[in-house]
């Protein structure tokens, strides 16, 4: 879940695409294609994370101190359950990553999942924006390559 910056880095240089030769343009296009693939992958993982957080948040909407004593089925394995009863329903334990788990009360837990969902959604928006920009550049490069190829054939 990397922080993504959409601002231009100070060390970046502006390059006029028309001054590059076909080989350089090809390399550039390849790089951009790779980046775009990576963006697609990241978007997929982010979407999965988003869904996970959303499901947890939705589950918490029907879960409060009144849930105490209710019956549940506890999964022992993926396909085997034993009946159980809910106790201490005012707190839940949340996986916060790197094998650490913390106990939170229901409102705090809701806040946690809402924060996470928001964070992930924001990252997705940033990637979508960056992806759009990159594919614009990619299209421009393809156009210039075509142009140069045509010129070569005529010349």
């Amino acid at each position: 879940m990397a922080q993504i910056s959409a601002t231009e880095q100070p060390h970046m240089k502006q390059i006029d695409l028309a001054t590059l030769n076909i080989q350089q343009l090809g390399t550039l296009k390849q790089q951009l294609d790779q980046e775009l693939d990576l963006f697609q992958e990241s978007l997929q993982s982010l979407k999965m994370a988003q869904q996970k957080f959303q499901t947890s948040n939705e589950t918490l909407q029907n879960f409060d101190a009144d849930s105490e004593g209710k019956d549940i089925l506890v999964p022992l394995t993926g396909s085997m359950y034993v009946p159980g009863k809910l106790i201490e329903t005012s707190n839940v334990i949340i996986d916060i990553g790197t094998r650490y788990y913390v106990e939170k009360d229901i409102p705090m837990a809701k806040d946690y999942f809402q924060r996470k969902t928001k964070f992930v959604t924001e990252q997705m928006e940033k990637i979508q924006y960056l992806g759009l920009e990159k594919s614009k550049i990619r299209d421009a490069i393809v156009e210039i390559i075509q142009l140069k190829l045509n010129q070569q054939q005529q010349g």
């Binding site: 916060i96 990553g97 790197t98 650490y100 913390v102």
Partner: peptide, 11 residues
């Protein structure tokens, strides 16, 4: 690094 930073803020 990112995961650890996130855990740190949560803690």
């Amino acid at each position: 690094l990112n995961e650890n930073e996130i855990v740190k803020t949560e803690l």
